[in-house]
Write a protein that binds this DNA or RNA. Structure first.
Lengths: 200, 200
DNA sequence: ACCTGAACACCGTTCAAGT
DNA sequence: ACCTGAACACCGTTCAAGT
């Protein structure tokens, strides 16, 4: 058998990615494999190479979808006050990591063998994420330079990300999940502290 | 051939872990395997199961050694002033992550299949890490409760950890490595902001 | 008791062969 | 052109067999 042509390339790609997401959610990235994905959609493993360069490429495409979902989730923040907007971003980010733990950890733990080339689209999406945080920050700190705003955005995002990472690995050792409160005080105290600094 | 008995169990364990560390440093966790480790020390893969429960157990033992190294590295902080001590811990942590990127990322990215049982010794070592940060914090904030100090220690460590994670994955998008400065301002502004808060 | 080598059930990836 | 199934070079893990 061959030449079935039941599905277009794009359909095959979509089916494979959807099946991969289900497998990922249910069994984690460790258990994900080309053979399982192919079997889930009724194709042979080899046929995936029509649509993906290799397993690494498949992971990047999964990550791109995850990142798109994350950006949509962050759109849900609707606060008017800039400090409230930052708080909402933080909470949404933690909520997303909790809702999609496997997709979220693949997004940040996946490495290409020698970091050959991180796909540019993915880099751009992450830059977009930073941009979202820079906006309320620049409203709060009108006298700071763009470089300072940019550094603060990276720092705060890294901070909230770190909280999400440690929670995902059960390294917070909290009786009750304190991640939300931690992110909240992190943002609040950082902003307050920065406001106290002598502006350059 | 069998029954060589050239090495004691403990010697075999040590040889395997040392070989694993070399492989890990040179080729990353993805390339690490029982077969390669065994071959590097002149044993068959099966013989490793005398000394390790499974590959997961081997990774945990590697991680335990990494964590011990990290704790030693943090001992090098010698500041007297509590805020300086926190800054030194932050810098030492980032320096360690930069010096041993593969060991450090195995330490935080390795998951046991269903998080069956994170080894208790490892949990204790991480608790020790938190304790180190709580000490200068409680000197700075004498009027805060132990719970508040504990939460702040977790938050700040998570923050610095997040910076290290994003740097390790080249997600900081800085022309020049700004991780040190980011950690420094994170700690400084958090402390300053907390001092401004009305104490409960 | 210790260790091996083959075996088993998996991987990612390639590619001749079939339609 | 599309797809398969076998093949190749890898995995982790087990275990009968050998000393």
């Amino acid at each position: 058998m061959a030449r079935r042509n039941e599905h277009s390339r794009e359909e095959l790609r979509e089916m494979a990615l959807a099946a991969a997401e289900t497998l990922l959610d249910q069994q984690g990235s460790e258990a994900l494999s080309t053979r399982k994905i192919a079997s889930a959609i009724g194709y042979s493993a080899g046929s995936l190479y029509q649509v993906f360069k290799n397993y690494d490429d498949l992971c990047w495409q999964l990550n791109q979808r995850t990142l798109a979902m994350l950006l949509v989730a962050l759109e849900q923040a609707v606060a008017s006050a800039p400090d409230q907007a930052l708080q909402q971003y933080g909470q949404q980010y933690l909520a997303f990591a909790a809702q999609w733990p496997q997709r979220w950890s693949l997004l940040f733990e996946h490495r290409t063998p020698l970091d050959l080339e991180t796909p540019e689209t993915l880099e751009q999406a992450i830059a977009q994420l930073f941009g979202k945080i820079e906006q309320p920050l620049s409203q709060l700190f009108t006298d700071r330079s763009a470089e300072q705003i940019s550094e603060a955005a990276r720092t705060l995002w890294a901070g909230v990300h770190g909280i999400a990472v440690l929670r995902a690995h059960n390294k917070l050792f909290q009786v009750q999940d304190g991640a939300d409160a931690m992110a909240s005080t992190l943002l609040e105290r950082y902003i307050l502290g920065w406001q106290q600094e002598i502006s350059a």
